[in-house]
């Protein structure tokens, strides 16, 4: 039984087709990982034209993908200059890609347990900070698509949207070690973003946000409900938010 499992592992997972690691992406325009490994001839042209020295040649630590180009975003992120896709001779990088919004090399994931802003918000909700937490906002400030790929929820919590291209500048600049924000390369399985329930909840959330025409719904509704003060005495005179004429002309 053990032997057959080992054989299954050996033959079904082709070790030549590459493997995924966090914070290690292919250059922009790369095709699917297994196709990339088929097509890349390790000619190092993309490495040569990269003006930021972001793309590096894989070493022995990357096993059989040695010699292929990678972006190790913790050292240097991709600055989306789009010089590399056009020089690839075999189509491992999509030669026609010019629009930086269509780059899809990964997606950023925030670790909410270590991110300064999330810690600050947590402290604040408890009632007053202990002084340890601080606001940072670095990822929001360095993002090439602020308010599109990353939004500040309630003006403090950074949230990554689906528009994130995975350039990794936020990872390079994140002041926390280990990094509180990581790039999950395209094709890598990720617990926090994978599966049926994630997709379903995302769709429901999007739907609830869309139907907000004048009415409270989704997040806004939740916020409104939380803000209702139940301890407040209700004996006070209710103030109407519409004009009512209680003047002397009133008939009663």
């Amino acid at each position: 039984m053990k032997l057959i499992e080992k054989l299954r592992k050996l033959f079904n997972n082709n070790p030549f087709k590459g493997f995924f690691k966090k914070n290690r992406m292919r250059p922009p325009g790369a095709v699917r990982e297994d196709l990339f490994m088929e097509r890349c001839i390790r000619c190092a042209r993309c490495i040569e034209v990269c003006p930021f020295d972001s793309i590096k040649r894989a070493n022995i630590s990357d096993k059989l993908s040695i010699g292929t180009p990678y972006i190790y975003t913790e050292e240097k992120a991709c600055y989306l200059c789009m010089k590399c896709p056009e020089v690839c001779p075999t189509g491992a990088l999509d030669n026609k890609l010019i629009d930086i919004k269509k780059v899809n090399i990964g997606v950023a994931v925030i670790n909410q347990d270590t991110c300064y802003n999330y810690l600050f918000a947590k402290d604040e909700n408890k009632g007053g900070t202990a002084g340890a937490a601080q606001i940072c906002n670095t990822c929001y400030n360095v993002c090439p698509f602020p308010d599109v790929a990353i939004i500040l929820k309630e003006f403090i919590l950074p949230v990554i949207t689906d528009k994130c291209v995975g350039c990794g500048i936020c990872v390079e600049r994140c002041p926390i070690t280990p990094k509180a924000i990581n790039i999950v390369p395209t094709g890598m399985a990720d617990k926090s973003r994978a599966g049926f329930y994630y997709e379903k909840s995302r769709l429901i959330y999007e739907k609830s946000q869309k139907s907000a025409n004048g009415f409270y719904s989704g997040d806004n509704l939740l916020k409104k409900k939380r803000n209702i003060d139940t301890k407040k005495k209700t004996t006070d005179k209710i103030k109407n938010d519409f004009d009512v004429n209680f003047g002397e002309d009133a008939e009663w």
Binding site: I41, R42, C43, A44, R45, E48, V49, V87, P89, T90
Partner: peptide, 18 residues
């Protein structure tokens, strides 16, 4: 970027040699 590449594959101007 007039000549780029290595001996796997090289571009001289727009002339590709592999």
């Amino acid at each position: 970027y007039f000549i780029k590449g290595t001996f796997y594959s090289m571009d001289i101007g727009d002339l590709a040699i592999s």
